[in-house]
Design a protein around this nucleic acid. Structure first.
Length: 509
RNA sequence: GGUCCAUUCGUCCAGGGGUUAGGACGCAAGAUUUUCAUUCUUGAAACGGGGGUUCGAUUCCCCCAUGGACUACCA
């Protein structure tokens, strides 16, 4: 019997979660749901120094906005809790001690300065070994070099210590990654990682991670490629604990890269290049520095995650638009690519546009209301819903709404200069006033797009005028801009009196 | 410096021992439209280099180059 699929997303609350993290969470979620498994949120806050206030809530809020739901976690609870490593503090020392006892780990007392000195010395010697391991630990202050009684005395006296994993010497470790296949590394190239530190009584990531994944019955670890180099350590840790038979499968996702230049996408890139890197806007509590978010920039969460899913994964077909449910069906670890993917802000916008085009009018109306309120427009639901079909194919981001549709809600106060120069001739004012008179004769209940257009066209033929010669300036006077939806749809929607009023404003031009 | 991972249009992906190497974004041109946007059509645009294996490699193998990640008492 294969064990139940249980995967986790394990962020560290050191700041807002960026889109790469969201993608990792999303792939975990898709994998879990596809296999009818559980998706767990575990907060890895074992670094007390880097804790950032608000980050944990941010992570949960951001994922909730994306539609990514956890089966177990801080807010959801669950029988494998607590889900915050700082609250599991008591667990880890015991496991660290277990390793010390069976000689897979040892005490070390080196100060930061001494460690720095060691690195410097090795570098000066041009040694290819620069790490604390079987080749170098014999020169350091630890349980290998100190008498056992001394070690015990130091620990009992409360001297600061760390527990290091005793990396075996010259052994080839072969691991399996679901995306990359077999990977081998010689332990001589690895180091005796610190797994526990007495200073705060907390484990480091490596220990906490393995212990918790084991205790929480995690079946698959799906994480970013930046973790690949520590996979051998993790595999060895499972072995040292005797947990190899229940060791999870590993999958290391390709990184999200900067659109320009090189390197992984970082929080600095977004606002530098004009796109958000975070799902939600964030203000750093320390520095007050603000970062923009996809939500605030006018993206739909469905579009955002759809875009993310296709960065580093492909369905093998040409389909690009997927609902989350379709993604759950289609997702496949085999089709994850191995190389990093450069993020494209243009493609992100395109996805959003596709979603906006098919979004229900009613839903859009709700999303546009706050924008209307911000612009001091009194909301008329019936009217708003009628306006939406005319603008939803014209916007890329929700935030484009006001720019594209303002004239539906208020009389233009200024006119696009380029369009004015192009279309405004000496006789235009009079022509439009004459047209207004004609339109004014149409009874209120016949003031439809179809009928007003007929009347206007008739007016043009009778006066021997060109369509463009009349319609372009009419559009300008009605909307203030050079573009927009079908002219007479605008006429019908804003209504007779407003149409006449706006035309009569031409006298001011 | 060391280790590991990667390499198909500018970008994201497909493909796979013999193909006109496919799609999408973006870009360009055209059609439609009173305008802008949409839509449609068309176009330019790629297998990093060198060795093998093979009748034949973009596809398999090796080397190189390039890129990336990691190399903390961070995660």
């Amino acid at each position: 019997m294969t064990p139940k699929v249980r995967v986790r997303f394990a962020p560290s609350p050191t700041g807002p979660l960026h889109m790469g993290g969201v993608r990792t969470a999303f792939f975990n979620y898709l994998f879990a749901k596809q296999h009818g498994g559980d998706f767990i949120l575990r907060i890895e806050d074992t670094d007390s120094k880097r804790f950032v206030k608000g980050a944990e809530d941010y992570i949960m809020d951001a994922l909730a906005w994306c539609g990514i739901r956890f089966d177990e976690g801080i807010r959801e609870g669950g029988k494998y809790g607590p889900y915050r490593q700082s609250e599991r503090k008591d667990i880890y020392l015991k496991y660290a001690m277990q390793l010390v006892e069976n000689k897979h780990a040892y005490y070390a007392f080196d100060t930061p300065d001494e460690l720095e000195e060691m690195r410097k010395r090795l570098e000066d010697e041009k040694s290819s070994v620069r790490q604390y391991n079987a080749l170098t630990r014999g020169y350091m202050k630890n349980a290998y070099t100190l008498p056992e009684s001394d070690v015990k005395a130091r620990v009992e006296a409360g001297e600061a210590y760390v527990i290091r994993f005793a990396m075996p010497e010259n052994e080839v470790v072969t691991m399996h990654d679901m995306i990359r296949g077999e990977i081998s590394v010689n332990t001589n190239d690895l180091d005796d990682k610190v797994i526990f530190k007495s200073a705060d009584g907390l484990p480091t990531y490596h220990l906490a991670n393995i212990v918790d994944d084991h205790l929480m019955d995690i079946s698959h670890v799906i994480r970013g490629e930046e973790w690949l180099p520590s996979l051998p350590l993790h595999v060895l840790l499972y072995r040292a604990f005797g947990w190899t038979d229940t060791m999870p499968e590993f999958a290391h996702l390709p990184l999200l890269l900067k659109p320009d230049g090189k390197g992984k996408l970082s929080k600095r890139d977004g606002d530098r290049l004009g796109f958000p890197v975070f799902p939600l806007a964030w203000t750093d509590p320390e520095t007050g520095e603000k970062s923009s978010g996809y939500r605030e920039s006018g993206y739909l969460p469905e579009a955002f995650v759809n875009m993310l899913a296709l960065l580093g994964w492909s369905p093998g077909t040409e389909q690009e638009i997927f609902s989350t449910d379709e993604l759950i069906q289609a997702f496949d670890m085999e089709n994850i690519s191995k190389a990093g993917a450069k993020f494209s802000a243009d493609k992100a916008k395109w996805f959003n546009q596709q979603y906006l085009k098919v979004c229900e009018d009613g839903k859009l109306a709700e999303m546009f209301k706050p924008i209307l309120l911000q612009n001091n427009i009194e909301i008329n639901d019936d009217y708003l819903i009628k306006v939406i079909p005319h603008i939803k194919e014209r916007i890329v981001l929700l935030t484009d709404f006001w720019e594209q549709a303002a004239f539906f809600f208020k009389t233009p106060v200024e006119y696009n200069q380029a369009s004015l120069n192009k279309h405004w001739k000496a006789d235009t004012t009079q022509t439009l006033l004459n047209l207004a008179e004609r339109l004014n004769n149409i009874p209120e209940n016949e003031f439809t797009a179809h009928h007003t257009e007929e009347v206007a066209k008739e007016f043009i033929t009778q006066n021997n005028l060109g369509m463009g010669k009349v319609f372009n300036p009419l559009r300008l006077v009605l909307t203030g801009t050079g573009g927009g939806p079908h002219l007479f749809d605008i006429v019908e929607l804003i209504g007779k009196s407003e149409t006449i009023l706006r035309i009569k404003q031409v006298r001011g031009l």
